[in-house]
Computed example of a mutant assay.
Amino acid sequence: MSSFFSRLKQGLSRSRDSLAQLVPGGSVDALSEEEWLDIEDGLIMADCGGELSGSLVQQARKRRGSSIEALKTSMLSMIPDAKEINTSENGPFVLLVVGVNGTGKTTTIGKLATMFGQQGKSVLVGAGDTFRAAAVDQLAVWVERAGADMVRQHDGADPASVAFDTVQRGVARNYDVVIVDTAGRVQTDRGLMDELAKVRRVISKAFPGAPHEVWQVVDGGTGQNAVVQVEKFREVAGTTGLIVTKLDGSGKGGIVLQLSHTYGLPIRYVGVGETLEDLMPFNAEAFITSLLPEHAVKS
């Protein structure tokens, strides 16, 4: 757990350092109006969003103790509880993974396959990003490394066909987990979004009740664009959880709080680096403790 916490803390160092410059030290009762405005500005700059930042400050002002502890308690109250993953009792757990190109989706799927494999589960991955040969090849390397199996078709094949074949094979051969990749959807392209809806439909025909989860991968450094992406994908794909990657590359760690609070979606994993260990199951308290400075700058 200490190793987990230290990696998370290191990965969020830019966000934490940025917040430290605008979160004054001292108790809640001792802060001036201007200092509370500084805190709100710091949260906005960390991509918590204007509305959520205002709500966090409003809640924190009503609490006792230090400004940091008050913010931490307020942040925790804003994050919805994550329910246990809805696995299937009579067949594989089918996971559909969506997201635009550049979010780290392919790498994330490879890491998820590895994690499930380390839990002793048999894993089958469907390479549905059929229009990017490099993405399929990259996924194949991860899948082989994970000791999992993969279904792939020719370049340019119908992604829905790949999804259907993958789930059918997963059911027929009693895999524990089936992960279906999708093309890097541009959320403003109606045709591509319609195709994503088709992928979801055929999965349910191959295995009624599937997909059991739909996780969207978003790049934490893209700020408000990530908010727009989640809104659109949720409408079409029925997103049930989020994976926020690349949090080590910017000072925008607050986007995790904004996405979770705005859409009431659980954050399943966060990514703070390139290695397998840097994709971590989301723990709200550990995340917020790592995001906030230990000792705020005294005014």
Rank of each mutant, 00 (worst) to 15 (best):
E89N: 14
M193W: 04
Q118S: 13
P293G: 13
A82Q: 12
V199K: 11
S3N: 13
Q138L: 04
V151A: 11
W142C: 14
R201G: 05
Q258A: 14
G65P: 12
T103P: 11
G273E: 03
R169P: 11
K298N: 13
L257A: 11
D158Y: 00
G26P: 00
L112K: 02
R14M: 08
E195K: 07
T245N: 15
Q138R: 09
L265G: 07
G209M: 15
V228E: 12
G251M: 06
L52N: 08
S74D: 00
V167T: 12
I68N: 00
A206Q: 07
W215E: 01
K298A: 14
I79N: 08
P211W: 05
S74Y: 03
L139I: 14
G238Y: 07
S122E: 15
A148G: 07
V125A: 06
M78A: 15
A183C: 10
A226D: 10
I79M: 13
L291V: 09
G249Y: 05
L291R: 07
Q187Y: 10
Q118D: 15
R145A: 13
P266C: 05
T188C: 00
S2H: 12
G249M: 03
L71N: 04
V236W: 00
V171R: 13
G128P: 00
K246M: 06
G54T: 02
L257R: 04
K198I: 08
Y263W: 06
L192Q: 12
S6K: 15
G102I: 05
G241D: 05
G249N: 03
V151Y: 11
D38S: 15
G104A: 06
D81I: 10
K198H: 06
G156D: 10
L76N: 12
A210I: 09
D189A: 14
Q138I: 14
L291G: 06
D219F: 09
Q153F: 02
I267A: 02
R64P: 13
G91L: 07
L95W: 05
T103L: 05
R16Y: 05
E51R: 13
Q58Y: 05
G191V: 02
A133C: 08
K232Q: 14
